[in-house]
Amino acid sequence: MTAQETVERAAGALKVFPLPSAVLFPHTVIPLHIFEPRYRALVKDALATDRVLALGQLEPGWEGNYEGRPPLQSLMCAGVIVWDEQVEDGRYNILLQGVSRVRMVKELSPDTLYRQVRAQVLADPPYTGPEEEQLRQAVFELAGRVPPSFAESLLPVAARAGGGMLADVVASALVPEPGRRQELLGELDVRRRLEQVLVDVSDLLSQLQPVRPSGPMN
């Protein structure tokens, strides 16, 4: 069974980890340290079943009710735990591989410590257009202005990815602000998503000086 099929099977009762400081994109991996009791229970149950959970955002104004069940934003990213380690006090370190955007249809009745939703899985349609190559070229240009270690991790992915995957992996690597990441996660039109990520990369390029060649100039 593919990861996509696993997420689709889990969508009827999808476990949700609301984490306001982090936004996961499909095709990317995020490390998480799980320490709250309700989310330790979530991870324990996920590991015992399908290893699927969704990383979600809370609606603005959640701060006063974080310990409760403040409203969830409807667009999330569902993923599969690809590595796990249980540490002291029942806490976990995990790596969560993003698989697909999902839209919450309904939050389920609270019969667990953690939250679960019924969700619609939102797969990207195939897309090929000029925006794809424009973004790829912008990433190649950016690679000449950032440390080699960072460029070497981004360039192979940018070279082989296309369509929505290209937008997602570039956004994951280069867009740090959670609110902006959530906006890009919520953009379901692949062409517009590519355009929006290109705006972010172009803004970053405008802030970085071109690398000047070293050595004597003739």
Rank of each mutant, 00 (worst) to 15 (best):
Y66Q: 14
R192A: 03
K15L: 10
A54M: 08
R40F: 07
Q97I: 08
D45E: 12
H27S: 06
S21K: 15
L154E: 02
S172P: 06
D50F: 09
S206P: 15
Q196C: 01
L24A: 09
M217C: 13
L198V: 01
R191Q: 06
I30F: 10
A22I: 07
L19N: 02
F25T: 02
L208N: 06
V87Y: 09
M76H: 14
E131R: 02
L184S: 06
S149F: 13
V121S: 04
Q86V: 10
E85D: 14
L24W: 01
H33P: 11
S153W: 03
R136L: 05
E177A: 09
G144T: 11
A22G: 08
L113E: 13
G164W: 02
L14F: 10
P26F: 07
L58M: 12
L47F: 11
N218R: 11
S100W: 09
G162S: 15
L42H: 10
A158W: 00
V169E: 01
F150C: 04
H27C: 02
R38H: 08
P18E: 04
L205N: 06
L95T: 02
L198D: 00
I34Q: 03
E36P: 05
A22K: 04
R101N: 10
N65H: 12
S100G: 08
A48W: 07
E152C: 04
E187M: 06
L19C: 09
A78E: 02
R69C: 01
S21M: 14
Q4H: 12
P178K: 04
E63K: 12
L174S: 01
P110K: 13
G64R: 15
Q196G: 05
Y127T: 01
E152N: 12
T128L: 12
Q207W: 13
G163D: 05
L96F: 04
A48N: 11
V199S: 15
L32A: 00
L47I: 14
D89Q: 11
M165V: 05
Q134N: 15
F17S: 07
Q207F: 09
L184M: 15
L24T: 09
W83Q: 14
K106A: 07
V23Q: 11
G144A: 10
L155W: 07
I81A: 05
S202T: 15
K15N: 07
V170H: 03
D111E: 11
L194K: 02
E36Q: 11
P70S: 04
P176T: 08
V157R: 14
D203Q: 13
R180C: 08
V82K: 03
Y92W: 12
E132F: 02
E67M: 13
L32Y: 02
V105H: 15
G186L: 14
Q86L: 08
E187F: 02
